[in-house]
Design a protein around this nucleic acid. Structure first.
Lengths: 264, 264
DNA sequence: GCCCTGAATAGTGTCCGACAAACCGACACT
DNA sequence: AGTGTCGGTTTGTCGGACACTATTCAGGGC
């Protein structure tokens, strides 16, 4: 029959608290930086118990809409890029995204990021890139794979920031992080990869420093294509989740919560 | 002196609760769908009070790592794309992203989305697109601007879903939502816009239906360029925040919390 | 007069105990 | 089988309590 029942939803008090505060923020009645009343006062204002207010606050905190400026100052805040990126990264991991899926997006968006970085980077950004490059050179020489991966992620993050484009950063960071984490699996198979990477980064950095969007874009594209080729050559699977939820087989089947509590 | 004190962080109990549960989930010891113990049991396991557990759970809920399958069943869950998108959209709004910033990303990523949709769309996706197109035609004829905007957003969302690429969807949706919300400001100035949009959508949909990635990409690119041109012609500002936090001037200066509480 | 220090204050983090409402499963009834 | 009833269980919310610490402020030292 044509009956299409919308699931009825009881709204808990703590949801209403966070929803109301959220809408006040979104409507600009509470501006970033502004301090909120204490928990007791909020509880009084909303006419609910302090515990309830606290539960509501937890949600807003976790969404980055409010944060503690100091242990006793709760202020409205704009979500921080870093935290957004890490949440999105986590989500993509859980969605079991594949190398191929990530790469297809990265191959379009990373060159764009490089281009915009070349247009908008500040001297400070360039300095950060050069510093990263120097450390990368050392890590490459020392064959320190862990460091190479870490510095590569940092490199992408600096580029991202240098674009001065939050929309791009938001789109790119999670993808970059996840994709180039796959580098770790790659390096043992391709000893020459870090050297190639070092050169590509160097070219992009120079282009960014000189404000040449085309070169920055071009070398980033090459780098991305090269990365994919390496991945294939190493015989790694393109269609398997990059970071499987169930860490292959053999892992200890301890599935319950084993946690020793606080004072461990 | 070279002393660089990292800010020491006291970890509150509720943070530890959510952090531990989160890591259990990320490590795959708790799999999506799996049910968590009740609050009292969790409290006992962690050795903390139930209130504390509840605060921890609120954070996980808000991050989409757990959800209530029914009012009494708390299950592990993978973050839902829709919720991620809306959170990211909100973040971009608060970061006061401009039309130009959004557009530069959209002009690269939307064509990619169309291409991937053409490669991967199912019959069901195509059917949804056609249904959307039909309603869009009606709304255009009726000059119902609100409906046009709503259906345009829906169109982009369907395309996004049709790519079968969560990484792309995550990157694209917030940008699309915010950018094409700007359509609302545009329409009054450009009466012919919906008709042009209708054609572009139609071409893309046909290409998706026929599995022609190049045509899909091409028409989406045109559509994006056209959109920007319209925005310029309408004299709208490219470098102003798309959705300002402070809604221009003149808005009521009621900045405190006015909220009548629960039983309003 | 200004800065430092210590007491007073206020606010958060955590716990305890309690209770109504609802949900869920089991059981009885038709 | 389907429906009604019932009771145990769990959540949502409340009130109160207490330790700890940021913050404030007043008073004393320079």
């Amino acid at each position: 029959m044509g009956l299409r029942p919308r699931p009825i939803q009881v709204s808990k008090a703590y949801e209403q608290v966070s929803a109301q505060l959220e809408s006040q923020i979104l409507e600009g009645r509470l501006l970033p930086g502004e301090q909120l009343p204490g928990e007791v006062e909020l509880a009084a204002l909303f006419g609910v118990n302090r515990s309830t207010v606290r539960e509501g606050i937890r949600r807003l905190e976790s969404e980055g809409l409010v944060r503690r400026a100091s242990p006793r100052k709760l202020v409205v805040s704009t979500p921080k890029a870093r935290e957004l990126a890490s949440r999105n990264t986590r989500a993509l991991r859980m969605l079991e995204v594949t190398f191929d899926q990530l790469w297809r997006v990265a191959v379009e968006i990373e060159p764009l990021a490089a281009e915009l970085a070349a247009r908008n980077a500040t001297d400070a950004d360039v300095a950060k890139l050069r510093a990263n490059q120097a450390r990368m050179a050392k890590a490459t020489e020392a064959r320190d794979d862990r460091a190479v991966v870490r510095l590569d992620l940092e490199y992408h993050s600096i580029i991202s920031e240098a674009t001065k484009n939050p929309a791009l950063a938001l789109a790119q960071e999670p993808i970059g992080i996840l994709l180039y984490s796959g580098l770790e699996a790659l390096l043992p198979h391709l000893p020459q990869a870090p050297a190639r990477q070092l050169e590509a980064h160097g070219r992009v950095i120079d282009a960014v420093a000189m404000g040449d969007p085309d070169v920055a874009r071009d070398w980033t594209l090459r780098h991305a294509v090269d990365f994919r080729r390496g991945y294939i050559m190493a015989g790694l699977p393109m269609d398997a989740p990059i970071a499987p939820l169930v860490p292959a087989a053999g892992a200890k089947a301890a599935r319950e919560i084993t946690t020793p509590p606080r004072d461990a």
